[in-house]
Structure formats: structure tokens, C-alpha cells
């Protein structure tokens, strides 16, 4: 039943996110608000991490499959954006190369050298 309890937490936080988005008119999606609230709640040590993790891990593993129906649509909109595909391709390829280069340069400049002991130890409980 840990899975069900965890799923209820996740659904509940999504609904809480939606409530805040509607009431406060936030320009953010309910999922993001729910995610931030979830992180905050876990930091306060409220709620059982085992329950929430039992529902979260399989869902996160399924993310690629969940977005796939959305990807299918791209093969059917070719005509809607006729004449713009060159702009789209250049923007995606060029823009991504440039932003990866910027990120790497920024990180090389500001990251402190790797301490040998800090080989990221997972704190999954």
C-alpha cells in the first residue's frame, strides 16, 4: 500500500499546486508548484519518504513513455509550419551548441576543484 499512499501524496500536491495557481493567478504550471511544495515538505521531514519514493521512482522511470504521445504529433504538423523549418533547425542545433559551450565555460571558471572525498554519495533512504 506504500505505492498507493505515495500516489495519493503526489496527486494531493498536484491538486494543491493547481489550487494555488488558480487562486493566486500564478504564471506557472500546477506540477512545478506541487514539486516545489513537495521538496519543501520533505525538507521539513513531514510525510514518509519511503511512501513517496515508492510512487515517485516508477513514475519518473515512465516519464519518457508518458511524453511519447505528445511527440507523435510532430510528424503531423509539417504543413502548419511550412517555410519555418530552416529557422527551427538552425535555432535548435546552433542554439544548443552555443549554450552547451557557454555552460561548460561558466562551470570551468566557477566550479572549485573536485575534492576526492566528495564522490557524490547518494543519500537515498
Amino acid at each position: 500500500m506504500a505505492l498507493l499512499r505515495g500516489f495519493l501524496w503526489l496527486t494531493g500536491f498536484w491538486l494543491l499546486g493547481e489550487t494555488l495557481v488558480v487562486l493566486l493567478g500564478l504564471p506557472v504550471s500546477a506540477g512545478v508548484v506541487g514539486m516545489l511544495l513537495m521538496t519543501g515538505m520533505l525538507m521539513l521531514r513531514v510525510g514518509r519518504l519511503e511512501d513517496i519514493a515508492a510512487a515517485s521512482q516508477p513514475l519518473i522511470g515512465l516519464l519518457a513513455m508518458l511524453i511519447m504521445p505528445g511527440v507523435v504529433g510532430v510528424f503531423f504538423v509539417a504543413d502548419d509550419f511550412a517555410g519555418q523549418w530552416l529557422a527551427v533547425a538552425v535555432a535548435l542545433v546552433g542554439g544548443t551548441l552555443a549554450s552547451v559551450l557557454t555552460t561548460l565555460l561558466l562551470m570551468r571558471r566557477f566550479m572549485p576543484p573536485e575534492p576526492s572525498a566528495a564522490a557524490a554519495k547518494e543519500t537515498s533512504s
Binding site: 506540477g31 514539486m35 513517496i52 508518458l66
Partner: peptide, 16 residues
């Protein structure tokens, strides 16, 4: 795709 909502909330766990 309805599951994307709770799955987004679930991303809070690895973040934590």
C-alpha cells in the same frame, strides 16, 4: 499523459 501531473510533482523527490 494525465500521469504527467503527479510525475512532475514526483521530481521533487530526487531534487530533495
Amino acid at each position: 499523459m494525465l500521469l504527467l501531473g503527479p510525475a512532475t510533482v514526483a521530481l521533487g523527490v530526487p531534487l530533495y
